[in-house]
Design a protein around this nucleic acid. Sequence first.
DNA 1: TAGGCCATCTGGTCCT
DNA 2: AGGACCAGATGGCCTA
Length: 214
Amino acid sequence: MEDLFLDFDAQDAATDFAFWGQMDPNFQFQSQLDTLLFDCSAMTGQLSPWPSFGCQSVFPEAQLTFTDLDSQSPQLEVGAEVDSSLVDEPHEIGKRRQQQRRLTVHHPYKVQRHAANIRERKRMLSINSAFEELRCHVPTFPYEKRLSKIDTLRLAIAYIALLREILMSGCDPKSYVDEFISEKKKRVLFINFTYLIFFLLKQIEFEQKVELKM
DNA sequence: TAGGCCATCTGGTCCT
DNA sequence: AGGACCAGATGGCCTA
């Protein structure tokens, strides 16, 4: 993993986090962080990663069978190029079936392609179910909209980095972060860690805005 | 309405 | 040879 560092006091530091939007200049980093850390321990049941160890795949589609997918296929059915005007009339259905058989015989490529499409869809479903499980293990707030795949990956990387750092420090999580924010390490932070912290702080910011509106 | 995200199809490449 | 994997193209849906 690439080690990137960020000077927190740099004037343009905020632009490094443009993907979160601009931070409020009046945002109270330390006090909000304290709130966060206390809230985190209280909200354990609401934050996604901690209660969900052993979470099962929430993507039942991932267990779809070959025939399920086959019947769901929106296009490229075998013989799909048959004129759609030939429908429902009994004799036309017979003709169409005949034509489909011909196409099956004469276009083995189409059949292979169709089978490959189905396999590809199954493969993507299994990838998606893995993403869904990963989402269960990264910290998000209940009101946070579903993480995109790319954000899930980035946040997972950041979260792992944070946990590793905490593990290596030998401290409990809160004192670790306290120390991190303290004088010694204030200016330079491991970017993955800051990514996670900024993410969490944006959640708090968002939560406050929601509360103000209510 | 533009941009982000996603599912799907597709053809190419690699692997068994 | 057939399946797995990958990346590009495309179109639909949603949101700011």
